[in-house]
Amino acid sequence: MTGRASESLLDALHGMLAGALTDELKRAMEAVDSDGVPVPINPQLLDKVMKFLAQNGVDAPKSAPRVDTLAAQLAEVNLDDVALGRPN
């Protein structure tokens, strides 16, 4: 059995996860129904994003700049509207 993955591999995986969450959040923020009305963002997605950010704090690897993009994308979400089911 091999040991722990290399730090560079873990950093790459971390960056990929941050990118996937960023992309998913961006799609959710741009989603509209058949009438063109914005669709509320799934609170579970927001929970995932917030947990990811909380777990990383300022310790996110510099090789994963998409973490900053993810944080900026989340900052655009009006959480009060999401909690009340109103479109962003």
Rank of each mutant, 00 (worst) to 15 (best):
M1H: 12
T2N: 11
G3Y: 02
A5Q: 11
A5F: 11
A5M: 14
S6F: 13
E7F: 12
S8I: 15
L9P: 00
L9R: 13
L10K: 10
D11C: 05
D11H: 13
D11S: 12
D11T: 07
A12I: 02
L13M: 11
L13F: 07
L13W: 05
H14Y: 11
H14W: 09
H14M: 09
G15K: 05
G15F: 05
G15L: 08
G15Q: 06
M16V: 07
M16D: 05
L17V: 13
L17I: 14
A18G: 12
A18M: 12
G19Q: 11
A20C: 12
A20E: 14
E24T: 13
L25H: 06
L25C: 10
L25V: 15
L25A: 10
K26N: 13
K26F: 14
R27H: 15
A28C: 07
A28D: 04
A28I: 14
A28M: 10
M29L: 13
M29D: 04
M29G: 11
E30L: 15
E30G: 12
A31P: 03
A31N: 07
A31I: 09
V32K: 15
D33N: 15
D33T: 13
S34N: 14
S34A: 15
D35G: 09
D35N: 11
G36A: 07
V37K: 15
V37W: 05
V39A: 08
V39P: 03
V39E: 03
P40G: 06
P40Y: 10
P40E: 06
I41A: 06
P43M: 14
Q44S: 10
L46I: 15
D47F: 12
D47Y: 11
D47M: 13
K48G: 04
K48I: 03
K48T: 04
K48H: 14
V49S: 02
V49D: 00
V49I: 09
M50V: 01
K51H: 08
F52I: 08
L53D: 01
L53N: 01
L53S: 02
L53Y: 01
A54T: 10
Q55H: 07
Q55I: 06
N56H: 10
N56M: 05
N56Y: 01
G57E: 02
G57P: 01
G57F: 03
V58H: 04
V58L: 13
D59S: 04
D59L: 08
A60C: 02
A60M: 05
A60T: 02
P61Q: 05
P61R: 10
P61N: 05
S63E: 04
S63Y: 01
S63C: 01
P65N: 11
V67Q: 00
D68P: 01
D68E: 11
T69K: 07
A71C: 03
A72L: 14
A72R: 15
A72M: 13
A72V: 07
Q73I: 10
Q73A: 12
Q73T: 12
L74M: 06
E76D: 02
E76W: 01
L79E: 03
V82M: 06
V82W: 00
A83P: 00
L84A: 10
G85T: 00
G85I: 00
R86C: 04
R86D: 02
R86Y: 05
P87R: 07
P87C: 02
P87S: 05
N88V: 10
N88C: 07
N88Y: 01
